[in-house]
Design a binder for these strands. Structure first.
Length: 224
DNA sequence: TAGGCCATCTGGTCCT
DNA sequence: AGGACCAGATGGCCTA
């Protein structure tokens, strides 16, 4: 949360009520390092990890084992168990072996797909500024998406403000002195807004946006 | 104990 | 035909 506040945008907090800080707990201390669900980035129970997930996680991208589909191991996800009888007796009635093999293959693909999705979400979490800490619970999926959206919006807003600042400082001037690359982020021909001479009111103008002398002002830069 | 979050299975649909 | 994507259902784990 501190990181969010330091960025000075309330947009980060503009999540849906249910997904606010209390929901994904920026500061909420839960169990283990990765949260109570420990081993897998996305959660899941211990028995779950011992079963399908643990295996599939380490062999990510290469699902093949029938045991990983929960038919034998009793992986959680009740649907499988609940419908097992139905599968064996119903839809898989004709050629049980082939049908079952096909179903297992489909299950494995789907599992792999979801793992990829979770990996992508982890990647997204890693670039979102929030309290990454062993003692802080990981963002939920929905919170990750909402926070990412707000972060993007905030970045766009910051960019726009920066553009306005540059335009303001450059208004009415057309000097050829190039700005340092770091001060010319938008690729436009750089100019100092107030020229080489000391301009009355320079500090006020230059601090209008930032509250401090602007690096974009040659006059300010020339001052010792 | 209720609610939140999650992984998995499953069948349907669409695309290549 | 096979794969990708999606949504519903289910049950486990965890926190308040």
């Amino acid at each position: 949360m501190a990181e969010l506040k330091s960025l000075g945008s309330e947009a980060y907090l503009a999540l849906s009520p249910g997904y606010g800080p209390s929901a994904f707990a920026y500061g909420a201390v839960r169990g283990g390092a990765e949260g109570p669900r420990g081993s897998y980035a996305g959660g899941g129970g211990a028995d779950f990890h011992a079963g399908a997930m643990g295996k599939s996680a380490e062999s990510s991208g290469e699902q093949s084992g029938d045991e990983e589909d929960g038919f034998e191991t009793g992986v959680k996800g009740g649907a499988g168990f609940e419908r097992e009888g139905k599968l064996k007796g119903g839809a898989l009635g004709k050629k049980p072996k082939e049908q079952r093999s096909l179903r297992l293959s489909i299950n494995a693909r789907e599992r792999r797909r979801m793992h990829d999705l979770n990996d992508a979400l982890d990647g997204l979490r890693s670039v979102i500024p929030y309290a990454h800490s062993p003692s802080v619970r990981k963002l939920s999926k929905i919170a990750t998406l909402l926070l990412a959206k707000n972060y993007i919006l905030m970045q766009a807003q910051a960019l726009e403000e920066m553009r306005r600042l540059v335009a303001y400082l450059n208004q009415g001037q057309a000097l050829s002195a190039p700005l340092p690359a770091t001060l010319n982020p938008f690729g436009q021909s750089p100019v100092y807004p107030f020229g080489g001479a000391a301009v009355p009111g320079c500090p006020e103008k230059c601090t209008a946006f930032t509250g401090a002398a602007s690096a974009l002002c040659k006059h300010c830069n020339d001052k010792p």
